[in-house]
Amino acid sequence: MQSGYKLSPLVGYHGCDKAVAEKVLSGQAHLNHSENEYDWLGDGIYFWVDSYERALEWANKGNNKTPYVVGAFIDPGFCLNLTDYGVTSELKTAYQFLKETYAQIGEDLPTNAVMQHGKPMTRKLDCAVIKAAHQLRQDAGEPSFDTVYGVFEEGDVLYPGSALKEHTHVQMAVRNQQSIIGYFRPEQLISSTP
């Protein structure tokens, strides 16, 4: 089943503490994989695609003593691209597998929750389905996805009647560390927004 495709290399930004950033930039450490049950793209190192500002905003919201941003050049490799219509059948199969598994053990499926502006912000179900898709590929001896790429609609509408949201963003979860070509120290970008 071919549902992942090779995307062009891209630039990602990761918000973190400056002490972590300095270790990563000096080659002493790598960024850690996130493995929370609510990580909407499943496990991986999360990057904001082409958005230094969102990464910095994220770093400022966290428990970081000195919020900072690490830039990365990323080769997505074999990518579970959630913007590609071709992945829908694989995700539906993973959902069905997950649903049957939870029914067999007599537990409820995880749910997407914490609604904001009509969109679920905590995506435990989506995370579980993506993890199930990875597991099914592994069980079938199929190649693993190196990365997962998706668009997340978030925030208020930009203006009355708009379908555009204030905080819509593109994120990538890097599962295979080899997909990170290299890290860099981004120059602070000057935003034109007030």
Results as ranks from 00 to 15, higher is better:
Asn63Asp: 14
Val49Arg: 10
Thr66Trp: 00
Thr66Tyr: 02
Glu53Asp: 14
Asn64Glu: 05
Val69Leu: 15
Ala55Gln: 01
Asn64Pro: 00
Ala72Pro: 07
Asn60Ala: 09
Leu56Met: 13
Leu41Val: 01
Tyr68Met: 04
Pro67Val: 09
Val70Asn: 11
Ser51Asp: 12
Val70Trp: 02
Ala59Ser: 14
Asp50Ala: 09
Asp50Glu: 14
Ser51His: 02
Trp48Lys: 04
Asp50Leu: 04
Tyr38Met: 02
Val49Asn: 05
Trp58Ile: 07
Ile45Gly: 06
Asn63Trp: 02
Asn64Val: 00
Trp48Ile: 02
Glu53Met: 11
Tyr68Trp: 14
Ala59Gln: 07
Tyr68Glu: 07
Trp48Glu: 08
Tyr38Trp: 12
Ile45Thr: 14
Arg54Pro: 00
Gly42Pro: 03
Ala72Lys: 00
Asn64Gly: 06
Val69Cys: 10
Gly71Glu: 13
Asp43Glu: 03
Val70Ala: 11
Lys61Ile: 02
Tyr38Cys: 03
Trp58Glu: 04
Asn64His: 15
Glu53Ser: 15
Glu57Phe: 14
Tyr46Thr: 08
Ile74Tyr: 08
Glu57Tyr: 05
Trp40Pro: 02
Val69Met: 00
Trp40Val: 05
Glu53Cys: 09
Gly44Trp: 03
Trp58Lys: 05
Gly42His: 01
Ala59Asp: 09
Asn60Glu: 15
Ser51Ile: 09
Val69His: 11
Gly44Ile: 09
Phe47Ser: 03
Phe47Trp: 08
Pro67Asn: 03
Asn63Cys: 10
Phe47Pro: 02
Ile74Gln: 10
Trp58Val: 03
Thr66Lys: 13
Val49Phe: 06
Gly62Ala: 12
Glu53Gln: 09
Trp58Pro: 12
Val70Leu: 00
Trp58Thr: 05
Ile74Asn: 02
Val70Phe: 02
Tyr52Ile: 13
Val70Thr: 04
Arg54Trp: 07
Ile45Arg: 07
Ile45Asn: 06
Glu57Ala: 14
Tyr46His: 09
Tyr68Ala: 15
Ala55Tyr: 08
Leu56Gln: 00
Ala55Met: 00
Leu41Trp: 07
Asp39Ala: 10
Ile74Asp: 01
Glu57Gly: 07
Gly62Asp: 02
Ala55Ile: 10
Asn60Trp: 14
Tyr46Glu: 10
Tyr38Glu: 09
Tyr68Cys: 14
Phe73Tyr: 08
Asn64Gln: 14
